[in-house]
Computed example of a mutant assay.
Amino acid sequence: MPRQVRVIGIGTGSPAHVTGQAIAALRECDVFLVADKGEVKDELVAVRRSICEEFLDEGAYRIVPVTDPERGPDADRDRTAYRSGVDAWHAARAARYADIIANLPEGETVGFLVWGDPAIYDSTIRIVDAVAESMPLEVQVVAGLSAIQVLAAEHGIVLNGIGQPVHITTGRRLLDEWSADLGTVVVMLDGSLKCRELVGSAPDLVIHWGAYLGLPQQVLRSGRLADVIDDLVSLRADLREEHGWVMDTYALTVPSAPLLA
């Protein structure tokens, strides 16, 4: 029989983000495999533990940390090298998960606790698909509250203009892709705030930025890009120094033209 696997979106850190469907899926799992990224990011593992403790009975599950494979210096790679590096990292992750799953007692259901939503800039589904190439799996994916949704809610904004699109991209691609015609641009995975390079051409862009969304140390900032970007760069560096890691997301919007009388 195929191994049962649950890929569960758990929101961005707060137990209040965990949906009823996610809680039901958590309770179906016997063991959770959690990527261990070292002492610097222990807090991310701790949050996952606290969510299990919030909703599950003690002794009803196990958490198995899995040492994450080394990942190369993405910022120094061109697009081709970046993709090949990520593919290698995913393959190494899948091999480690497959080895553990293959040795679990028969009938145990495996859970993966995904930060935010599994469909948005997360690799767990792809990695589980790779594991399924070496053993039969039956996979259920449960949606979660994404950083994008939390960012918009915390700032009290609507991401799309009336009848307008929303574009989601990464810091690596922002400068090549940005255009006022894209509507709101939501940027993820941007370790160096590439938006500062748009100040010369689009200084009036409005940025809504958030770090550690959903966690007690959440930080929000917003304003005209040209006015706030220097402070944001400094703040982000300070937060990384303080906590050892940063997860942040931001939205760039073009100011609306005033309505004619």
Rank of each mutant, 00 (worst) to 15 (best):
D129C: 13
D129L: 13
W115L: 02
A147L: 10
A132N: 11
W115F: 07
R77I: 00
A88R: 09
I100T: 10
A94I: 02
N103K: 12
I101S: 13
A132G: 13
A119P: 11
G85T: 03
A147C: 15
I120Q: 11
A102W: 12
R77D: 09
L151T: 09
R79N: 09
A81E: 06
A81H: 01
D122H: 03
G144R: 01
A132H: 08
Y121L: 02
P136E: 01
S84Y: 09
V110D: 02
R79Q: 10
G85V: 00
V86S: 12
E138K: 10
V110H: 05
D117K: 00
P105S: 14
T124A: 06
A95T: 06
I127G: 14
R126P: 06
E133Q: 11
D87L: 09
A102C: 15
S123D: 11
A98Q: 15
D78I: 03
S134R: 12
L104W: 13
D99G: 09
Y82D: 07
F112K: 03
A98F: 11
D129R: 14
D87S: 10
E133D: 12
M135K: 10
N103C: 11
A92V: 00
M135A: 15
G111T: 03
I125C: 15
D99T: 09
E106V: 15
P118H: 05
Y97K: 12
E106N: 15
